[in-house]
Nucleic acid binder design. Structure first.
Length: 882
RNA sequence: GGGCGCUUAGCUCAGUUGGUAGAGCACCGCCCUUACAAGGCGGUGGUCGCAGGUUCGAGUCCUGCAGCGCCCACCA
C-alpha cells in the first residue's frame, strides 16, 4: 500500500531505514574515539580470516561486542573498537589453490611471487565482502583504523618479537618428529590435528628369529607399511613369555635386515601379542622408545608420504604412495606366509583440520618457541584474577592446557604468511636473525646468505594482535590509552589457539595483560542443534537474514539467546518473532508521534497522575536492570528486560492507559501525558540502542529532529522512583486483568461493554476512583459502581482480589452453570493454596527460623487466600439459589 | 583414561545470595476495540533426569547414578 512521506508506514521496513542511518554514521566520526573524554574503553575485534565471508558465528560474536561498544560510547567514554583481518595462512592459501585448481593451474607453476600476488587479490576481495557484511550488521567499528596481520605495523611487530625471543634463546631450531600434512606438505601444530575413530585393520605379522628362522614372534600393527622403517621389536621387561628373546635379533620381513628385541615399559603386555614393532621415525611413542634404546631413525617417506628412495628400502616399494605400499606389503607378506592373521580394528586416526589428510609423524627441521617461560606468568595472571574468564569455568580448560603445554612449532612450509626472519650462510653454519634485511652473515660476514623459505604459524601474528594493532613496539598514544583492552569476546574453540597465546605474548612483551575480561560465548548451531557447515547445507547466511528480517531483528535475537555457557540453536522463527517486535516498536512510536502535540521529552518531568508517575518509575527500574545485566555480560537478560518493558509495560499498559488522558481528559492532563509518553519513549530508545541501533536511531531522529544522533547521545538518565504510584497501578492492573479474565473465560465479546461493581474500603475506593476512567477504558466497562466493603451482589460473576472484590452482573452475559464451574475451579485452587500455606505456618521450626519477611509474606498470603475462599464460597451459594 | 557442560511446559530455552516454577513458539477460545492482525484479550499445559543427603524449606547447595554433548590424552 502507498504511504505518504509524512505518514510512516504501518509496517516497519528495515530495508529503507537501515541503509539511511548507516550512511549517516559512516559519514561522520561517530565510530571514532572521542578526544575529549578521560575514560577509555577498548575491544579488539577478533580478526576474521580472509577466507570468504562471515557466518552466523561471526554475527553473534560481533553483535555482542557492538552492544558493549555502543553502550560504553553512550556513557561518554572514549571508545576504540579495533578492526582488522587475519591472513590465516593455511586456510587462505588453500582457498586460492582451489581457485587455481578449478582453472587447471597449480601454485608451483606460478611460482611463489606470482602466487602471493593472487592471494593478495583474493584478500582484497574477501576483505571487501567481510567489511560489507559488518556494515550491514551495524557494527560501530572505527573504520579508519583497518589493520591486517600482514600489514607493515603487524609485520614489524612479528619480526620484533621473533628477534627478541631468538636472542633470549626462547626460539630455537630443532630436528624432531612433527605432525606432517602430506597433502599441504607442511608441518602443523598438535592443535591442528583432529583425532577421530576410523575403521581399520590389525595385521598380525610374523618376524622370524635371526638365529633360527623357523621360529618367529608375532607383532600386531595397524600400519604394516611402516615396517620398512622398523628399528626394533619391543616387549615388556617383565613379560615372562619373551624373557629369552630380549637382546636377540629378528629378521625384518621383506627387508632382510636384522633388528633387535628390546625391553621397554611402554609396551602393554595385555594388548595385542605383547610384541610391538618400533618405528622411531614415524610414531611419537616409538620415537621416545627409540631414544631410550639408541635405535636408528629410519625415514621412509617423502614430503608427500610416498616411500622414498633410501637404499635401506627394498626397491620394489620405492615411490609408492603410503597406501599402495601397504597393500603391496600385506600381499607380499601373505605370499611369504608371514601374515598370521588380519582383524578388523577401530582406532583413532589424526587428520589435518584443514586438508583432512591423514597426518604423518615426520622427522623434519622446524622452528620452536620454548613455551614454559611464557606460560608460567600467563597461568599466574588468570590465577591471580588479573584476567577473568566469563563464565569462570572456562579457566579450568585454560589451566589444563597451559599446565601441560608443549613447545610450539611455529614454522610452516607454506608461501602465504610472515617469512621467517632467519638467514642461512653458505660459508658457515651461523644463522642470522634480523629485524630488517641483512646483507651479510652475522657470523662470518659472508654475503652468501639466503632467507629461510618457511613462514610463521598464523597464530604467531594473531597472538600479538591486541598490541600490534596499536602500533607496538612504538610507544604510541593508542598503546597508552587503549591498552590493556577491556574485554576479549570469542568462542571457546580458540582458547588454546589464540587466547592463551595472546596472554603469553602480551605479558612477555608489554608487561600488561592484553585484556582484563574474556567473555566466552557459545557456538551457533542450527535449529536441530547441528553445527553449521557448508557441507551439511544448514548454514544460515547473516546477510540473507538481514535482507529478510532486518539487522535489528537478527541482533536482538542473538542477544536474547546469548546465555552464558550454552550452545545457541538458531531458529529462524525466533528471528521472525523479533522482527515482529521491531514492528511493534515502530507502531508504538507511530502512535506516540501521532499524539505528541507540541510536547517534547523532558527527563525532569514531575507528573501528577499515577499512570505517568508509574511508567517513569518502571522505566527507571528497567534502566537499572539493563545496566546491571550489561555490566555482567548477561546480554539475554538485558534483551529480555527491554522486551518485557517495551512490549509488556509500555505498549500493553501505558499506551492504552495514556489514551484515556489523551482523548478524554482536560488539556493540562493531556499535556502532561504527552511529555511523559515522549520522555519514556526517549528513555527506552536509548536503552535499546546498543542492541537494536537502526530502528532506535531512526525513531530518535523522528523524536528529536533530523540533526539528532542517538549513536553519540548519552545513555539513559535516571527517573523518579515512585513506589506509591507503582503499587496503585499494580492494583488497577490486577482489577483490569480480573475483569478481562472473566470476560475471556465467559466468552464475552471484547466489543461488548459491561457493568462492573467493585466493593472496597473507603480508602482504597477513593484511591481507585481517581483511576475510574482508566479502569473503565481498559476493562471496556459501560459503567462502574462502587460498593461498601463486604457487600454481596446477587447473580454476578465474582473475582475476589487482595483488597477489593469485583462483581460482574451476569444478566445477559453468561449462564449460571458456566460461572459456577469457573468458581469451582477457583475454589479448588484457593483451597490448595490455603492448605499449603497453613501447612508451612503450622511448622514451628519454619516460623522460628525463617526470616521475618518470609513468614510475614506467608501470613499475608494465607489471609488473602482465606478471604478469597470465603467470598468464592459465598458467591457459589448465591448462584445455587438462582 | 582425565576434564567440562547439559538434562525445567509439546518444542526452544530463562530462572545469580535456597522462600509455594517463567518466557517465546505451538495449541484452544473471543476479537479487524481509530499505533500495530507481523496485532489485542483470555486460556490449556510442568511430580524441574533418577536416588540419596544438608535445611524449617531445594529447580537452586552436597554425594552417587543414568542419558546426551564437547574438550584433552591415548594401546601398537
Amino acid at each position: 500500500m502507498n504511504q505518504q512521506a509524512s505518514e510512516p508506514a504501518k509496517i516497519y521496513d528495515p530495508q529503507t531505514a537501515e541503509p539511511a542511518v548507516s550512511d549517516q554514521w559512516l559519514n561522520s566520526d561517530a565510530f571514532k574515539p572521542r578526544l575529549d573524554a578521560d575514560e577509555h574503553y577498548s575491544i579488539t575485534l577478533p580478526p576474521p580470516n580472509v577466507t570468504g565471508s562471515l557466518h552466523m558465528g561471526h554475527a553473534f560474536s560481533d553483535t555482542i561486542q557492538d552492544i558493549l561498544i555502543r553502550w560504553q560510547r553512550m556513557q561518554g567514554k572514549s571508545v576504540l573498537w579495533q578492526l582488522g583481518l587475519d591472513h590465516a595462512g593455511i586456510a587462505t592459501q588453500m582457498v586460492v589453490e582451489r581457485q587455481l585448481d578449478a582453472k587447471g593451474e597449480h601454485r608451483r607453476d606460478l611460482g611463489r611471487e606470482k602466487f602471493i600476488e593472487k592471494v593478495w587479490d583474493w584478500k582484497a576481495e574477501s576483505g571487501g565482502m567481510i567489511f560489507g557484511q559488518m556494515k550491514r550488521l551495524g557494527l560501530s567499528l572505527d573504520w579508519s583504523r583497518e589493520r591486517f596481520t600482514m600489514d607493515e605495523a603487524s609485520s614489524n611487530g612479528v619480526r620484533e618479537v621473533f628477534v627478541r625471543l631468538f636472542e633470549e634463546g626462547l626460539i630455537y631450531r630443532g630436528k624432531r618428529l612433527v605432525n606432517w600434512d602430506p597433502v599441504l606438505e607442511t608441518a602443523v601444530s598438535d592443535l591442528e590435528v583432529v583425532h577421530g575413530e576410523e575403521q581399520g585393520h590389525f595385521w598380525h605379522i610374523q618376524y622370524p628369529h635371526a638365529d633360527d628362522p623357523s621360529k618367529h614372534v608375532i607383532v600386531a600393527t595397524t600400519r604394516p607399511e611402516t615396517m620398512l622403517g622398523d628399528g626394533a621389536v619391543a616387549v615388556h621387561p617383565s613379560d615372562e613369555r619373551y624373557q629369552d628373546l630380549i637382546g636377540k635379533e629378528l629378521i625384518l620381513p621383506l627387508c632382510g635386515r636384522t633388528i633387535p628385541v628390546v625391553a621397554d615399559d611402554y609396551v602393554d603386555p595385555e594388548f595385542g601379542t605383547g610384541c610391538v614393532k618400533i618405528t622411531p621415525a614415524h610414531d611419537f611413542n616409538d620415537y621416545e622408545v627409540g631414544k631410550r634404546h639408541d635405535l636408528p631413525l629410519i625415514n621412509i617417506f617423502t614430503n608427500r608420504a610416498h616411500i622414498n628412495d633410501d637404499e635401506i628400502i627394498p626397491e620394489q616399494y620405492r615411490g609408492l604412495d603410503r597406501y599402495e605400499a601397504r597393500e603391496r606389503i600385506v600381499a607380499d607378506l601373505e605370499a611369504e606366509g608371514l601374515l598370521y592373521k588380519v582383524e578388523d580394528h577401530e582406532h583413532k586416526v589424526g587428520r589435518g583440520d584443514r586438508s583432512h589428510a591423514v597426518i604423518e609423524p615426520y622427522l623434519t627441521d622446524q622452528w620452536y618457541v620454548a613455551i614454559q617461560d611464557l606460560a608460567d606468568p600467563a597461568i599466574k595472571a588468570v590465577e591471580d584474577g588479573d584476567i577473568r574468564f566469563v563464565p569462570q569455568h572456562w579457566e579450568k580448560t585454560y589451566f589444563e592446557w597451559m599446565r601441560n603445554i608443549q613447545d610450539w612449532c611455529i614454522s610452516r612450509q607454506l608461501w602465504w604468511g610472515h617469512r621467517i626472519p632467519a638467514w642461512y650462510c653458505e660459508d658457515c653454519d651461523h644463522i642470522t636473525v634480523d629485524r630488517g634485511t641483512p646483507e651479510c652473515c652475522g657470523g662470518c660476514g659472508s654475503k652468501k646468505i639466503r632467507q629461510d623459505e618457511d613462514v610463521l604459524d598464523t597464530w604467531f601474528s594473531s597472538g600479538l594482535w591486541p598490541f600490534t594493532t596499536l602500533d607496538w613496539p612504538h610507544d604510541s598514544m593508542e598503546m597508552q590509552k587503549f591498552y590493556s583492552t577491556n574485554v576479549l569476546v570469542t568462542g571457546f574453540d580458540i582458547i588454546f589457539f589464540w587466547v592463551a597465546r595472546m596472554i603469553m605474548m602480551g605479558l612477555k612483551f608489554t608487561d600488561k595483560v592484553p585484556f582484563k575480561d574474556i567473555y566466552i560465548h557459545a557456538l551457533i548451531r542450527d535449529a536441530q542443534g547441528q553445527k553449521m557447515s557448508k557441507s551439511k547445507g544448514n548454514v544460515i547466511d547473516p546477510l540473507e537474514i538481514i535482507d529478510d528480517y532486518g539487522a535489528d531483528a537478527l541482533r536482538f535475537t542473538l542477544a536474547h539467546m546469548a546465555t552464558p555457557g550454552r550452545d545457541v540453536k538458531l531458529d529462524v522463527k525466533r528471528i521472525e518473532s523479533n522482527r515482529n517486535f521491531m514492528n511493534k516498536i515502530w507502531n508504538a512510536a507511530r502512535f506516540v508521534f501521532m499524539n505528541r502535540g507540541d510536547a517534547a521529552p523532558d527527563a525532569d518531568v514531575k507528573p501528577t497522575s499515577d499512570v505517568n508517575r508509574w511508567v517513569l518509575s518502571e522505566l527507571n527500574s528497567t534502566a537499572r536492570e539493563v545496566e546491571k545485566a550489561l555490566a555482567e555480560y548477561r546480554f539475554n537478560e538485558a534483551a529480555g528486560t527491554l522486551y518485557n518493558f517495551i512490549w509488556g509495560t509500555y505498549c500493553d499498559w501505558y499506551v492504552e492507559a495514556a489514551k484515556v488522558s489523551l482523548y478524554k481528559d482536560d488539556e493540562a492532563s493531556k499535556a502532561e501525558t504527552q511529555v511523559v509518553m515522549l520522555t519514556v519513549l526517549d528513555g527506552w530508545l536509548r536503552l535499546l540502542h546498543p542492541i537494536c541501533p537502526f530502528i532506535t536511531e531512526t525513531l530518535f531522529q523522528e523524536l528529536h529532529g533530523p540533526d539528532a544522533r542517538l549513536v553519540t547521545s548519552d545513555w539513559t538518565g535516571s527517573y523518579a522512583d515512585d513506589e506509591q504510584a507503582v503499587s496503585r497501578m499494580n492494583r488497577v492492573m490486577e482489577i483490569v486483568t480480573a475483569i478481562r479474565s472473566i470476560r475471556g473465560e465467559m466468552n464475552v465479546s471484547p466489543g461488548k461493554k459491561i457493568v462492573a461493581r467493585i466493593a472496597a474500603s473507603d480508602s482504597v475506593r477513593s484511591e481507585l476512583e481517581s483511576q475510574q476512567k482508566v479502569l473503565m477504558s481498559l476493562a471496556r466497562l459501560e459503567s462502574l459502581e462502587w460498593l461498601a466493603e463486604g457487600s454481596d451482589v446477587e447473580g454476578a460473576a465474582v473475582a475476589p482480589l487482595a483488597e477489593v472484590t469485583v462483581f460482574l452482573p451476569l444478566a445477559g452475559l453468561v449462564d449460571v452453570a458456566e460461572e459456577l464451574a469457573r468458581i469451582e475451579k477457583n475454589i479448588a485452587k484457593a483451597e490448595k493454596d490455603v492448605a499449603s500455606l497453613e501447612g508451612r505456618l503450622s511448622n514451628q521450626k519454619f516460623v522460628d527460623s525463617a526470616p521475618e519477611a518470609v513468614v510475614a509474606k506467608v501470613r499475608t498470603d494465607l489471609d488473602e487466600n482465606k478471604a478469597k475462599l470465603e467470598e468464592l464460597q459465598a458467591a457459589k451459594e448465591r448462584l445455587k439459589e438462582l
